[in-house]
């Protein structure tokens, strides 16, 4: 685990994973951790669903970042706004220069032209890094089904566009994206069949189709291990009729459901362990991607408290 700490030294991290695995919570926790270590941090939500703001219990995020915690700024990507900012900077046009229809048309064209929309989104983040506005930029990126298209945009542009400003941008962006010490992708998975399968596929496609390196895997929602070997034997013995009868009498009511709940937890964890093993075999090992584990959070609701717990779980893992 010696190379884990440099996860926090990256200047640009794209956090991806299958839908529903907790990308946003992990991104928020990681950002909070970076900020708490004194880094000026930007966290950006790419799909603008609004979940990021609730992770900090903050006001809704927009394209213009606002501070949600000390040292921590949050924003939502808006390709059209990003394009306007880009044009304003590149063509020295004022940001609100009656470009309404032009940007809408451009957006329309961009949805057909591979990589154009992606380049203005990813480009904005690379630009924040290049201009050293932040020490760390954490991206709550699109899900693993869409991330390859986003990160391979500069190559796609290079192959299709011969001239023009967009083409000129790909060079410096590729420099940042392919710098393993500065940038990387972090895949979040839960120890379940589909998320693990998709993580393994995404890791392979990252390597073959993009210039972005795999910075690590976060295994999220790991269930607790209730019993060691000897405890498990005692637990089995407790499940016997005489023992449960004894407990039920002592507690003045059925004790069996309490044992059932534990059995349920043991069984669920065990079926997930097999997927975890598959993940380790495919991506771990010497020279492989570091795996970081975040426990299942038994919390009433998700908000800043959950984000803090994720941050401290990550912190503990990184110090191991």
């Amino acid at each position: 685990m010696a190379h884990l700490p440099d996860l926090l030294d990256r200047k640009l991290l794209f956090v991806t994973g299958k839908g529903g695995v907790g990308k946003t919570t992990i991104s928020a926790g990681l950002a909070l951790l970076c900020a708490s270590r004194g880094k000026r941090t930007l966290v950006c939500e790419m799909d603008a669903k609004g979940d990021l703001a609730s992770s900090f219990e903050a006001a809704p995020t927009g394209f213009d970042e606002h501070e949600v915690a000390p040292n921590l700024w949050a924003m939502s990507m808006d390709p059209e706004a990003s394009l306007r900012q880009y044009l304003a900077l590149q063509l020295r046009l004022p940001r609100a220069a009656g470009l309404g229809l032009a940007t809408r048309m451009f957006d329309f064209v961009a949805s057909a032209a591979p990589g154009v929309r992606e380049i203005v989104s990813v480009g904005k983040l690379c630009w924040e890094v290049r201009e050293r506005h932040y020490d760390a930029v954490i991206v709550d990126a699109v899900s693993s089904g869409h991330i390859i298209g986003q990160l391979s945009a500069p190559q796609a542009i290079n192959s299709l566009v011969q001239v023009g400003l967009v083409r000129q941008q790909t060079g410096w962006m590729l420099d940042i994206l392919s710098d393993r010490s500065a940038c990387g992708a972090l895949i979040v998975a839960t120890p379940e069949e589909m998320p693990v399968t998709e993580t393994i596929e995404t890791a392979a496609r990252l390597a073959s189709e993009t210039s972005v390196g795999l910075a690590g895997i976060v295994v999220n929602r790991v269930l607790p291990e209730l019993f060691g070997n000897r405890e498990e034997q005692a637990f089995e013995a407790l499940s016997g009729e005489r023992a449960t009868g004894h407990l039920s009498r002592a507690l003045g009511g059925e004790a069996l459901p309490l044992l059932d709940a534990a059995r349920w937890m043991v069984k669920t964890r065990r079926s997930r362990a097999a997927h975890l093993q598959r993940l380790r075999e495919a991506l771990g090992g010497p020279g492989g991607a570091p795996l970081v584990y975040v426990p299942y959070l038994f919390l009433r609701s998700y908000g800043l408290r959950a984000t803090r717990q994720v941050a401290s779980a990550l912190s503990a893992e990184l110090e191991n």
């Binding site: 009656g98 032009a102 048309m105 400003l165 967009v166």
Partner: peptide, 18 residues
């Protein structure tokens, strides 16, 4: 304005392709 912007950003050739 669109053609002005698109020309500069994407280049005429690519715009024609599109």
């Amino acid at each position: 304005p669109f053609y002005y912007v698109a020309d500069r950003v994407l280049g005429t050739k690519f715009l024609e392709d599109i």
